[in-house]
């Protein structure tokens, strides 16, 4: 017995509304992030991650209000990613009630930002989000690189070296997304997950590709992830977080039930 592996539902939020269609049968307003977060909390989510995909900057403030409202009634850790570019963005989200912020593109363009953020706010609230894609040809030794802009722009940066560098700079956790698997429902990129998890000494959250509950189990047992993040399998009401936890427990994984 000991530390539980975590299940983290992720909500994409655009201008204050949940997108990518949450489809709970019995929910009043599936677009309301507060209501959806409350539902996941009731199901036993260990944390909730919000990804702010708001494009226009004049609607940025809506995410702050979402976090404020959720933090007022959901008492589990909340992470906010998307659009975190400067210290002021972090302060605003933490003051609204977020516990951690995810830094993605800004870290690639300015790695010192991660160092500055960790020194200012503590590593415990700095999650570096890494979007990685396999670049090795079939038959070659596996290699992954960092991509930005939703997986469209290569950076030439090796994913494992990048993860280690980000931890050196003060990242307290790595949110690792396989851009090859994201949206496919084919399961995590387990080789990638395991390579990163074994290369760093901070927790790694596996993300990208979950299509069924066995994928979550694989992410922990084979990918060696400390936590698993999923969106669609929970949003569409196929499985609850509780279903996922019971399934993982049956497979011998320690979870918070």
């Amino acid at each position: 017995m000991g530390l539980a592996k975590r299940i983290i539902p992720c909500l994409d939020v655009d201008a204050g509304r949940v997108v990518k269609g949450v489809q709970f049968v019995d929910i009043r307003d599936a677009g309301d992030p507060v209501e959806v977060a409350r539902r996941y909390d009731e199901q036993g989510a260990d944390e909730i991650t919000f990804l702010d995909i708001t494009a226009s900057s004049d609607q940025r403030e809506t995410m702050v209000h979402v976090v404020e409202q959720v933090a007022g009634e959901v008492f589990i850790p909340l992470t906010v990613g998307g659009g975190i570019r400067e210290v002021a963005d972090i302060r605003r989200m933490l003051n609204a009630g977020a516990d951690k912020v995810g830094i993605n593109t800004a870290a690639v363009f300015n790695p010192e930002f991660v160092r500055e953020a960790a020194e200012r706010f503590g590593s415990q609230c700095i999650v570096v989000a890494i979007d990685a894609k396999q670049v090795s040809a079939p038959g070659e030794a596996l290699r992954w690189e960092i991509f930005t802009h939703g997986g469209r722009k290569p950076t030439g940066i090796d994913a494992i070296e990048w993860a280690q560098r980000m931890v050196d700079y003060g990242a307290g956790e790595i949110l690792l997304t396989s851009m090859d698997r994201d949206g496919t429902r084919d399961g995590f990129d387990l080789a990638l997950t395991r390579s990163i998890s074994e290369a760093v000494n901070v927790p790694v959250i596996a993300s990208g590709g979950v299509g069924n509950l066995d994928h979550l189990v694989d992410g922990i047992l084979e990918g060696r992830a400390d936590a698993v993040l999923a969106a669609s399998i929970f949003h569409f009401g196929e499985f609850t977080v509780g279903d996922a936890k019971r399934h993982m427990a049956e497979r011998g994984i320690e979870v918070r039930l």
Partner: peptide, 22 residues
């Protein structure tokens, strides 16, 4: 300690200790 291992196994434990524990 940096080489923290799960009691009775060889599994390396990460630092920070982060998550839900008993």
């Amino acid at each position: 300690p940096a080489d923290l291992k799960e009691a009775g196994s060889d599994t390396r434990l990460k630092i920070p200790h982060m998550g839900w524990n008993q």
